[in-house]
Design a binder for these strands. Sequence first.
DNA 1: ACGACTTTGTGAAGGGAGGCACAAAGTTGC
DNA 2: GCAACTTTGTGCCTCCCTTCACAAAGTCGT
Lengths: 206, 206
Amino acid sequence: MARLPVYLRALAALADEGTESVSSEELAAAAGVSSAKLRKDLSHLGSYGVRGVGYDVERLASEIATALGLTQDWPVAIVGMGNLGRALAAYRGFAERGFRVIALLDRDPRVVGERVSGSRVRPMADLAALVEGEGLAIGVIATPPESAQEACDALVAAGVRSVLNFAPVVLTVPDAVVVRKVDLSTELQILAFHGQRLAVAEAVAP
Amino acid sequence: MARLPVYLRALAALADEGTESVSSEELAAAAGVSSAKLRKDLSHLGSYGVRGVGYDVERLASEIATALGLTQDWPVAIVGMGNLGRALAAYRGFAERGFRVIALLDRDPRVVGERVSGSRVRPMADLAALVEGEGLAIGVIATPPESAQEACDALVAAGVRSVLNFAPVVLTVPDAVVVRKVDLSTELQILAFHGQRLAVAEAVAP
DNA sequence: ACGACTTTGTGAAGGGAGGCACAAAGTTGC
DNA sequence: GCAACTTTGTGCCTCCCTTCACAAAGTCGT
């Protein structure tokens, strides 16, 4: 189900162009998957297509948004105001997709109080109040690797159940908590692996 | 094989602590995988373990680094000097892992020439020379979604075969080119999906 | 109203990755 | 030197995901 967001984005693009109906073949091409896979994915949500015609763009987008829980705003907090944290705080893509950054936090008292992208950086101790009062549900970890587990523990202790981790470490969490990882250096190393395979292949059969 | 970088990082941490030998069980725990999976992964590289003892930390790290092609430096160029591009340019994690950012590029003539993190931003036209002269092999796309495909085409035309894409679009490339995607909003939407499932589950059986 | 055509939804087959469990191999103690 | 113990490497089984292929269902032209 990790592909639903991609479909949703493709549908949004189609809607912007004024398209009203789309076939599985076209949508699959726009999303970069096979049409069979797309139809099977969509069939798990229910039968929202019309045989002989295709899918109604607006209707399908709305169904996917509902399935993903994007009909409500999701409050997000960013922990760690280093380079990456500040870049994320300035990133506009969050709000556009229904994610509201309600707090920026840092463990370092010298950073707390500073203004970043128009918000005052808050101390970690505020977390519990944010979960209780603002319904904070998603935490983003942008700390250095050494403090990532500590930041994660604080989020979990405060009641956050969804964590997006940018630090290059494996986090340990209770079963009820979901962690997704975004790992720059891993991605680059995988590219290096492919780059090397290419180089080797060319050396063997130039 | 996307797990090798994680193993490598766990091994580096062990080496820092002065550990010389590690069992599959311990290393698997540190990397967040099962020991059987770890052993199977490592067996694909060759037999570098000693039965009854475990793996030599330094030896294994070196073997993995070789397999990943990390014995050489990989020149990287970042395309798109918006918020994200500047954050990536300032990020120190690249150099630490053998990736050298040799160029920052932008399509906009008003940005070209500006200094970002100590480097002068260069025009897209410089790409071919970078591939030829500096052995540029990996391109990072940090442009807005509208110009991502254009940036990607320019990289491919210049001879870059590995692309890391931060823009939330599906890129079309020739077969010989490998694209990896890092997609913030997709990750957040997946977390929202889990968050909603949790909320629904609690509403049904509180 | 009917037949030709298009496109969905799904059953069945195929493939790959993960986990289990055990034999092989090496170590340690006596 | 031998036996008990530890840990790797791997054959087998299972399960999930993907792909193929086609029947069902709906549209459109006449």
